[in-house]
Design a protein around this nucleic acid. Structure first.
Lengths: 218, 218
DNA sequence: GGAATTATTATACACTTGCATAATTGCGAG
DNA sequence: CTCGCAATTATGCAAGTGTATAATAATTCC
């Protein structure tokens, strides 16, 4: 995030690759939106936090709106990538457990993550393009969860119809989202691991299968 | 919400009670925060929507921040009042069912309600006073739900320890919040009544008691 | 190594924002 | 009826907003 070329000689600035600058601007934007909302994230602050002057934003993005859109897309892609990684290996049951557990601990459960989500909501509700990104990500999560649930049930010798599976996925997704929300909005109201534990028990109850938290190897 | 005195003669304005003006300003503020966020709700727009000029805001509130705080408090109080009303009569089981059901239908589930919540979040996270209001309301909801759950369990001849009851309440609260969130953020993704149905089934599963939706009398 | 390219900075502008202060004007008290 | 007070409007201001345009300077290509 800092300048990679530490040449503090009389150079007034350093040229960086377009990719580097775009990402720096996007990350600064996400930071600021989490802190102050979209309107509070001014182009001047964004530029300052990305160590450039404000004019450069217009060089990479045709408007602030476009930068915000790009930031949203970047953020959502990061989210889905993280998720995909969290439930990679093992039996279906353990993959589901790990997924729930990981979704209810830092860095997923985090005040600024919730703030970021809230900051974007207005834009999402008004801009059709952002709406599509939102819907796509939501569906991705829910389908992922549904796949895990169906696999876990099958592993226990049970099978469900498609519509029932979808309802289970919606419900489990809601528990996770609700706990995520509350953990991020009231960080001090829950003990460490409490959210994950409650999440696991609730998902267990909803799908009717006991899930155990993975034992950590120290 | 409109002017009560319809005297469109040459009067330039009408004097109203302090209470009336305060409430009009607060409601206009809530409307605008839901639409554009706190920063987007400018004093000029608020005044216009309350049918006054912007100077009057300073006459009733010492700053925009104070107006926003008052609006938040007003909103939260309205919320808790509505909740208390939704689960008034009947057996414990039916009161719990009604509470869950009412929490997952309009007007509670509503895009602007979620937008309002999101709009306030930044302020809540930064301003200790608003944080207290938030915490108080959250606790109120959770305790209310916990009371309903414990009563319903007792009605079925079961009893739970305090810590277990709290966990059940947190979990049920999370399902409700998560479904509320998703219903408000993606209004077209769910059929009418679907959220309420999923909510009832999930709460049933979590606490281990079958809940039936009340039959409506047409 | 010099010139072209273009990433980057610098400056300017029209507009909005919250707030302060002064000027009105409706309305009740006497 | 009119006088005084406070509710309300009118006006102004300094700071901040996004964006447009011109000026500079770092890097590349030959």
């Amino acid at each position: 995030m800092d300048e990679p070329n530490v040449q503090d000689d009389s150079r007034k600035f350093t040229r960086e690759s377009a990719e580097y600058r775009r990402e720096a601007l996007i990350l600064a934007t996400l930071d600021l939106i989490a802190e102050m909302g979209v309107r509070g994230a001014t182009v001047r602050e964004i530029a300052a936090r990305a160590n450039v002057t404000q004019g450069l934003i217009r060089h990479y993005f045709s408007s602030k709106d476009e930068l915000v859109q790009a930031a949203y897309e970047h953020h959502m892609n990061t989210l889905t990538d993280q998720t995909a990684a969290s439930s990679g290996e093992g039996t279906a049951l353990s993959r589901l457990s790990n997924f729930v557990d990981a979704s209810l601990r830092p860095p997923i459960v985090d005040p600024s993550a919730v703030a970021l989500w809230a900051g974007f909501l207005n834009k999402v509700q008004h801009d059709p393009k952002m709406q599509r990104i939102h819907q796509r990500t939501y569906n991705y999560f829910r389908d992922h969860l549904e796949t895990l649930i169906v696999a876990a049930l099958r592993e226990c010798g049970r099978s469900v119809e498609a519509s029932e599976a979808m309802q289970l996925a919606i419900a489990c997704n809601a528990v996770i989202d609700g706990l995520w929300l509350e953990g991020g909005a009231l960080p001090d109201a829950f003990a460490e691991g409490q959210l994950a534990q409650i999440g696991l028990e609730s998902v267990s109850a909803i799908i009717g299968i006991p899930l155990k938290k993975e034992v950590e190897q120290p």
